Simulated assay, not measured.
Amino acid sequence: MKISIITATYNSAKTLEACMDSVLQQSYKDIEYIIIDGNSKDDTLQVIKSKAEKHANIIYVSEPDKGIYDALNKGIAKATGDVVGFVHSDDFLADTTIVSQIAEAFKAEVVDGIFGNLHYVQFNDTDKIVRNWVSQPFYPKLLNRGWMPAHPTLFLKREVYQTYGHFNLEYKIAADYDFILRVFRQEHHTFKYLPLTITKMRVGGASNRSLKNLIQKTKEDFRAVTTNKISFPLSVVLQKNLSKIPQWFSK
């Protein structure tokens, strides 16, 4: 089973090496690693080229794009693996066995996607957990409670993207939530929860960088819920936001 992992970058030189190493040092070897750079102005491209010289499984491109979701869509279009996942440039896989465990889970039973837990960590001290996103096994009614899997931990079969399309670029922050609703509300699909930390994410992402972004994300969440015909959208968005509070105290 080939697994494609996509990293979108833009001026990510400070964190990219740790991100890439977390993928390249995986014990699982059948990994296609795709880097989509948005024409960075710092040393990002030099970091990528240096790694690509030593690892034949790296595919990369550097060109202007329309933001992170556009970059991820480009990566999906290039992916040839049976399964597709993402490791964002500020993030890294929790340990070297993560992809092996994901591959084994896909082989053990017929599922369309696998997800797990996420640790938000301090930017300069990644051993310090700031927020602990512990997920749970999926059942459809969870979508009406504002639930979603932690997107950086979600690995989907490539045909899911081929069936439901890519990220909608009309969303600037919540395109992942829109996509998850689009896929997870299809009752014929099955998803498995792995009760382990898959990804560690440095704090300061686009959705929580400022009050303005939080307001925009809430508006986009409401639009996603409405567009995907989830009942009682105001309640769903409220529950989605409230569900994050315990994550700050469970470390």
Results as ranks from 00 to 15, higher is better:
Ala8Glu: 11
Gln122Asp: 06
Thr190Ala: 10
Trp147Ser: 08
Asp91Leu: 00
Val23Pro: 00
Ser100Leu: 01
Tyr177Glu: 04
Ser50Asp: 13
Leu45Arg: 01
Lys141Tyr: 00
Leu242Ala: 01
Gly81Cys: 02
Ile34His: 10
Ser250Val: 08
Ala52Cys: 06
Glu17Leu: 14
Ala175His: 11
Thr97His: 11
Leu234Met: 13
Ala52Thr: 13
His166Gln: 12
Lys172His: 08
Thr163Phe: 01
Gly205Arg: 07
Leu154Lys: 06
His189Lys: 05
Leu24Pro: 09
Gln162Glu: 15
Asn57His: 15
Ile68Ser: 08
His119Lys: 09
Val110Ser: 15
Gly38Leu: 13
His151Lys: 11
Gln239Leu: 12
Phe191Leu: 08
Leu238Pro: 04
Asp42Ser: 03
Lys14His: 10
Asn57Ser: 14
Ala77Glu: 15
Ala77Val: 15
Ile36Arg: 11
Ile48Lys: 04
Ile215Trp: 14
Ile198Tyr: 09
Ile31Thr: 09
Leu45Val: 08
Tyr10Ile: 04
Val111Thr: 04
Ser210Glu: 00
Ile3Tyr: 12
Lys244Pro: 00
Lys41Ile: 12
Pro152Asn: 05
Leu238Arg: 07
His88Asp: 15
Leu142Tyr: 06
Ala175Gln: 11
Glu170Asp: 12
Lys200Cys: 08
Ile59Lys: 14
Leu156Lys: 01
Glu187Phe: 11
Ser62Tyr: 11
Glu109Ala: 05
His55Ile: 13
Met201Val: 08
Ile68Asn: 07
Ile114Tyr: 03
Ile76Glu: 01
Lys172Asn: 09
Thr226Asp: 09
Tyr10Thr: 03
Asn39Glu: 13
Tyr177His: 04
Lys128Asp: 10
Met201Arg: 10
Thr227Glu: 15
Gln101Lys: 04
Gln186Ala: 09
Thr227Asp: 13
Asp42Asn: 10
Gly204Val: 00
Ser135His: 02
Leu154Thr: 02
Asp91Tyr: 14
Lys212Gly: 12
Lys244Gly: 09
Thr80Ala: 07
Asp21Thr: 10
Lys251Tyr: 13
Trp248Thr: 08
Thr218Glu: 08
Pro140Phe: 01
Ala71Gly: 15
Lys212Ala: 11
Gln136Glu: 09
Val84His: 10
Val237Gln: 05
Thr80Gln: 14
Asn208Arg: 11
Ala94Ser: 12
Gly146Cys: 03
Arg131Asn: 07
Asn124Phe: 14
Asn168Gly: 10
Leu238Phe: 13
Asn73Phe: 09
Asn117Tyr: 07
Ala108Lys: 12
Ser250Gly: 04
Lys219Glu: 11
Leu93Met: 06
Ser89Gln: 13
Asn73Gln: 04
Asp21Val: 09
Ser50Tyr: 15
Gln25Ala: 00
Ser40Met: 06
Pro64Glu: 04
Glu104Ala: 13
Tyr33His: 10
Phe106Thr: 05
Glu220Asp: 09
Cys19His: 05
Ile102His: 07
Leu143Ile: 01
Asp95Asn: 14
Asp95Leu: 01
Ser27Asp: 12
Lys128Leu: 03
Phe123Gly: 01
Leu169Ala: 11
Thr218His: 03
Phe86Pro: 00
Tyr69Ile: 02
Leu16Val: 14
His166Ile: 09
Leu93Ala: 05
Pro137Trp: 08
Leu196Thr: 12
Leu196Met: 15
Gly67Arg: 00
Val134Asn: 10
Glu53Ala: 14
Tyr164Val: 07
Glu53Val: 13
Ala150Asp: 06
Lys29Thr: 13
Ser4Ile: 03
Thr163Cys: 04
Thr80Pro: 03
